[in-house]
Simulated scan of single mutants.
Amino acid sequence: MGILKKLPGGVRYPSYKEWQLLKKLPKWWLLGSVVFAAPIAYDWWQSGDLLAHDLERNSMFLGLLFTFWFFIGAAMIGLIVIIIMKGPGYVADPYYLPKEDKSLENPPKT
């Protein structure tokens, strides 16, 4: 048996918007990164030192940049989970409960 064995008769649901959104995420990531990093880059270009000029503003834009990256990553994880959930079902190894197998109900004491 291979690592993943598909469930016989499993239903695979059609994709709706998740693939379209997942394909747009790199563009959104790049565009958002440019938008939030542009003020920092401009400030560095003008003064040559980020710590010498308006540290609060640069810190705010760095925080916005990292927050934006977090939301893009969370959206990507959510879309991948949706894609996996809509895929075919897989069979796992059986786990026999003690009520089904009487020999497992009272294990020998050591």
Rank of each mutant, 00 (worst) to 15 (best):
G63A: 06
Y16V: 13
D49V: 06
I40V: 02
P108Q: 02
Q20E: 15
I84T: 06
I80N: 10
Q46G: 02
G78F: 06
G87E: 04
K24H: 12
G9A: 00
V11W: 10
P26C: 00
W28H: 11
G63F: 05
G2H: 14
M60W: 13
I84P: 03
R57V: 03
D101C: 01
A41W: 14
Y42R: 09
K17R: 12
E100I: 05
G63C: 02
K99V: 12
W28P: 00
S103Y: 12
R57L: 05
Y96C: 05
Y90E: 09
Q46S: 13
F71H: 15
K24M: 14
K24P: 00
M1Q: 13
A75V: 00
L7V: 08
L97S: 10
L22E: 08
G87C: 02
H53M: 09
R57K: 07
K24E: 14
L4S: 12
K6I: 08
F66Y: 09
L79V: 00
L62W: 07
K17E: 14
P98T: 07
L4H: 11
D43Y: 07
P98I: 04
K109Y: 07
R57Q: 04
P88K: 10
A74C: 01
L7F: 13
M60Y: 15
L104K: 06
K5G: 09
L21Y: 14
T110K: 15
G63D: 08
Q20L: 12
M76V: 03
G48H: 01
M76K: 04
L65K: 03
I72H: 01
L50C: 05
I83G: 06
K102W: 10
I72F: 00
W29I: 08
F71W: 14
D101I: 02
Y90T: 08
